[in-house]
Structure formats: structure tokens, C-alpha cells
Design a protein around this nucleic acid. Sequence first.
DNA 1: CGACTTTGTTTACGCCATATAGTTTAGGGC
DNA 2: GCCCTAAACTATATGGCGTAAACAAAGTCG
Lengths: 250, 250
Amino acid sequence: MGDEIPVGLARLWRLPAESRLGRPAALDVDQVVQAAVALADRDGLAGVTLGKIAKELGVTSMSLYRYVGSKEELLVLMGDAATGPAPELPAGPGGWRAALHAWAYALRAVHARHAWLPHLPISGPPSGPNAISWMDACLTALRDTALDWGAKVGILTLLSGYVRSSSQLRVDMAEGRRESGLDQPQVEQEYGRALAGLVDAERFPEVAALFTSGLFEQPPADDPDQADFDVGLDLILDGVAAAISAAARA
Amino acid sequence: MGDEIPVGLARLWRLPAESRLGRPAALDVDQVVQAAVALADRDGLAGVTLGKIAKELGVTSMSLYRYVGSKEELLVLMGDAATGPAPELPAGPGGWRAALHAWAYALRAVHARHAWLPHLPISGPPSGPNAISWMDACLTALRDTALDWGAKVGILTLLSGYVRSSSQLRVDMAEGRRESGLDQPQVEQEYGRALAGLVDAERFPEVAALFTSGLFEQPPADDPDQADFDVGLDLILDGVAAAISAAARA
DNA sequence: CGACTTTGTTTACGCCATATAGTTTAGGGC
DNA sequence: GCCCTAAACTATATGGCGTAAACAAAGTCG
């Protein structure tokens, strides 16, 4: 029969092994993944090495291959583990808009907790249990609308992609500030000033105008990325609103 | 004076070197970057190696460090080179919506031509001349609106992030199909079926319903990703429309 | 108790980016 | 026309990486 479950999926879903023969395992997939996640939280994605994970767990690197098929698969496991289950969303009064808003904020918070997460290479559609739970939460927020499945999936993709890429940007810019040693706004201004000098007002009139607008000079608010994030999110939700009322009319 | 231009920026903008002393260079930055781009187009990002680039150009790998500061910097240069200059956008009748639509399509086409491009690690805000030209094109499309700079930048970020992440997804899924050897829809269905078996209808009612909806079973259209892309894009543009009319009212 | 099965280790390989030190090559000043 | 010197380029080496293959160890089952 075709009930073959790919071994990668089996590990993602923590399907228990059946055989009880042979030497018992000293670890399990979760311990390996947790160690890898801890390492990524501390040293970033580039700091995650089979050797370091193994050392952390007191085994040799090769023994890790008893638990994960490859480093690439380990990254997938790390992604699902670090994402964690979706939160409970406000069901009642606010309707879909409040729920999607909360969903996006929660995902963004997860990315803040694991800065490497938005940088993980995507390998296909969501397939881990935690990713599925986020998917379910988003679809639940849209349940009482007239949207068809295609539209719902499109919104899900758009929203998660937006949160992901905006988190990516935030992390990258923070890292750019840090690694240059200087304090935060100094580098930004110096870099911006150098760049502004390169931008020719005839070739790039709008960008030149943007640079002279002072938008990048003003002392940033508590969390400038936060404000940018809200702008884009509200814009998306406005688009969703339009799609919903269009679907209701049809 | 503070007219120091970071050396990385100088290379991005192809600022000519001043000194004419010493042994003349056999290559230039462009040749290195073009070779790297060609390699990435052929073998993917992971196939880009200093050694291979050097062999392609008939030099040793170490000599490449005369042209780029590091591999990371080379990736940035590759990104700007492969992106190329922004296209001319329809200026007249359609207004901002047609222009943004064309902009997004053009960027998506670039990603199709260089599948590795959306996977490049982002390192900060756009700073290469080509990236700036795309930025300028997008801002030009929004010039005759009442939006303030913050909103325009937000829209730019959202739109480019959307195109990027949807291209990422498209490439990853295509690669997932290819590397498993089987033909395209077969793997998709098998994987989907296995996944559907793991999704418990009580734990994930919406996702389970989605799986039984047949959305993933139907023979895909000419380009299914295309349709998904349009859904998200129209949604964003609806959101932009809302923002524009709100700004006009204020 | 011995066969078998599974886990973990040892060892080794090829590849990578890059530091360091030395060598080649041409133009500039005389 | 010839050396000096600065720049381009090469040779060599290092430490790290993921992982293939063969082997040793540690349990269960008959």
C-alpha cells in the first residue's frame, strides 16, 4: 500500500519508532534539536555546527546522523521547533481583523526571540506540526468569511511572507549596526550620508528627494521597525478587507 | 573631512581607483562578479565558490581578494549586478496601480531569471546602484499621490518583500520537485497525501478541511504560482489604494 | 548463551574561505 | 634606459566543515 511516510516527515511529527531491538538510544530527536536551537540563539545560524551540537550533548558528530538525516533536515526540524505552537487568538469581538493582527504580532515576536528563524532557507510548504498549527490559526481567523480556499491560502502566504521578510530586515539591520562596532545611529548616519552622496539627483530624483526629506535623520522612535511593520500590516489588512467584502458580494 | 566612502560601497558603485602605480590589474570587479553570477545561474548559490570563480577566470582563488573584500561582499555585488536596472514603467494612463503592478512583475521576472537571487542573505537596506534604481522606480510610481515618505517606504518594503518571498517559495518548491527525481505532480501529491494523513481533524480542523477541499488535487493551471502571486499582489494594491485615498482625505 | 539489531565511535576524505609570506610585473622618477 | 617601488598575483598552510565507510559496543530475543 502507499502508506509510506517520508522519514523526514516522520521525524518532524515525532512518530515513535516501532522496533525495540538493539542498543537503546542515548538521546532523542528533541534533545538534538533543542541543543541546535540553543546554539543558534546564542551564536546565530552560522554558529550551528554538527560538531558543536555533538559536543554540547557529549557525543561525536557522527552519532547525530542516527537522529537526523542531514544538516539540512536538522534545519527544518529546528525551524518547526523554534516556531512553536500558534497562540490562542482573540475569537470574539474584533473579528478576523483583530485575529490576523494578533497572529502577525505573535509570529513577529517568535522571530524576535529566535533571530535566525526568518533566515532559515525555506524548503517547501509548511509541513511540521507547529507550522501547521499556525496555518490552522490563520485559517480559523478567516473561517467566517466568504473567501474561498484559494484566497485564504493566498492571504496566509502573503501575511507569513510579510512577517518573515520584515523580521529578516530588522535582524539584518540590527546585525549590521552591531558588527561594525560603533553605536547604532552613528553607522546608520555615516552610511546613509555616504550613500546620499552617491545618489545622483538627476538619475534618481525620487530617492534623492527621499534622502533630503530628513526621514532618516530624525531620532528614531522607541521602535522604528515597529512603526514600519504596522504600516505594512495595516495595508495588508485593508487589502484583506477589500477581498472579503468582494467575496461577500459575489 | 568625513567624505570617507566605505570601500564596499565604492565597489558597489564602481568608483574608479585613483592610483596608477604598480602592476596593472588583469581583471576588474565586473568580470569577477559576472563569472560568479554565471556560476550561480548554472549551479545555484551553493555552487558559487571562490575556487570555481578563479578557475573560470584563469587565476588563483586568492587573487580574487584583490577585487572583493570577502565572499560575503561578493554576494552583495552579485545581487546588485543580477538585479540589473529597473525597467521603464508605464507612466501615463493607468496611474500608480499599473506602474506598481508592472514593477512587481518585472522584479518577479528577474527572480525567475536568477533563481538564487531571492535566496541571497539580505544585508541591510538597498545600497547598490541597481537596487536604488528599482527603489526610484517604485517611488516614482507613487509620486503623484498624497502619501508621505514613510508610507511610500513602507509600501516599497512591503512590495519588494512580497515579490521576494513569493519567488523564494516558487523556487524552493520547484527545487523540491526536481531533486526528488520523480516528475512534478507525483511527489507533490504523495507528500500531500502523507501530510494529510498526519493532520488530525480535531487538532487542526481548518487545515484538515483545506486538505479535503481538493484545492491541491486539481490539475494545476498553466502556472499555478502565477495565480497565487496575482492574488497577493492585487490584495496589496487594494491596500495601497486605501492608503492613498486616506492620505488624500487628510 | 549466542545471533541479531541498533547505536555510537573512529578514521578519513574532499571542500571551503582565508591568513601569511613570497614572487612577479609594470609604470614613475632619475 | 634603468632601477625602485607599489601593486597584483601565487604558493602554501590552517582550521573548520559535512559526511561516507568500517568498526566496536550494547542491548533484546530466541
